[in-house]
């Protein structure tokens, strides 16, 4: 976890834990795909999803839970739905890692630009 050490040694250019990106999301992009929330509020409320589960993968979680309810006790038939949901969560995590790295690089760039004046 070199980031923890860097956060101590270079606190000005290392984002902290669970950083909220501070730069313009379009900085350096000509166009950028927006994330779309597919599950609606009513669906999530009626399925009693916890606040933590109401992320951009909620529709896949709903599909997986629905499949389980339908196929029970033969829940192995929902393997694809489960895999789909977990892959979505994994990709969400990778996106968070990318956002952290983007924030870190932009902070370094900002520092470099400030030094140049």
């Amino acid at each position: 976890m070199g980031n923890a050490l860097n956060h101590y040694l270079k606190p000005d250019v290392t984002p902290g834990p669970d950083v909220v990106p501070s730069f313009d999301p379009m900085l350096g992009f000509a166009s950028r795909k927006e994330r779309v929330m597919i599950a609606t509020e009513e669906e999530m409320v009626s399925a009693k999803l916890t606040p933590k589960e109401r992320d951009y993968c909620a529709h896949k979680l709903l599909a997986y839970r629905g499949c389980r309810a339908e196929k029970f006790p033969f829940v192995y038939q929902c393997a694809h739905e489960k895999h789909d949901y977990l892959t979505c969560e994994y990709e969400d995590y990778v996106l968070r890692m990318k956002e952290f790295e983007r924030e870190r690089r932009l902070l370094e760039r900002q520092k470099r630009l400030d030094k140049q004046g």
Partner: peptide
């Protein structure tokens, strides 16, 4: 000690999130 990840993105009114 922490993992090098940004905050988890949750859809909310008036907040836009982007993929790469």
């Amino acid at each position: 000690m922490y993992r090098p990840v940004a905050a988890k993105q949750y859809p909310a009114d008036g907040v836009k999130h982007y993929t790469f």
